[in-house]
Design a protein around this nucleic acid. Structure first.
Lengths: 125, 125
DNA sequence: ACATGTACCATGTGTGAGTAGGGTACATAT
DNA sequence: ATATGTACCCTACTCACACATGGTACATGT
């Protein structure tokens, strides 16, 4: 399992990490239960900041593709194969597109939609 | 019907115009059928750019609070009283809040929601 | 002592959008 | 000729956010 980071790629570094790890799980290069390199270790190998790797790990754990066991390190999640196929972002886009489409059909300006969205996201809830 | 524009108010100038004209309709200061000042006229009086006034007028006409009749000028819409009470922005916020709330409950990051929203708004206008 | 994930402080850079303005031009109809 | 709304060109400023980075610190266990 080798990971390649391209600084010039417009895709964010943490996103490159996520997609490559998910791809590794699906291709079988990374197997459930298998140990992942530590955050600092991987950051050093890829010459990335540890925060960048930590961000990727945090999202991968939320998606249950990896599992962190505190001081014991990080491992591929038992259900990783199934979960790495779930595209949460695609679901969000689908839902949002439906919403936005309704607004546009009602004659709402894109600018107004953006403003409303901004207000929603700034309200703590 | 006097309109006051406050440059220091964080609310955009065109939005100040819209809300004050809607308020004027609801208070009865502006009656259906009544002529509105021309865009250039109002812009001169309030020391605003004509584009700013035009933007307010465009949105007011979409909401059917005013009516433009080409070279004949702009008038208060016959149904202005009813339409000035409709808060399209509030409806949009309500719908969006419901959507976003579902995302957050699903564990989606605010950052991810913002990114998905940005993609939706940029693909196809 | 050492490594794990994680938390907080902070910085800088780039991008995208909104707002507002200036200018010019046009078809409309008086 | 004049006035109406409207269309397009352009500029500038402001603000919020994502991204990535730096450092320090902590409880957790070996």
């Amino acid at each position: 399992m080798d990971i390649t980071i391209d600084i010039d790629d417009p895709e964010p570094l943490f996103a490159q990490l996520i997609s490559q790890i998910k791809a590794g799980v699906q291709s079988g290069g990374l197997k459930p239960g298998q140990a992942m390199p530590s955050i600092r270790q991987l950051a050093g190998d890829l010459e990335l900041n540890s925060k960048t790797v930590a961000k990727a790990y945090r999202l991968l754990e939320r998606d249950e593709v990896i599992q962190t066991r505190g001081y014991r390190g990080t491992f591929i999640h038992p259900e990783a194969t199934r979960n790495s196929e779930i595209d949460l972002a695609a679901w969000v886009k689908e839902q949002l597109a439906e919403c936005v489409g309704e607004f546009r059909r009602a004659g709402v300006t894109d600018s107004e939609i953006r403003i409303a969205f901004g207000e929603i996201m700034n309200e703590r809830s």
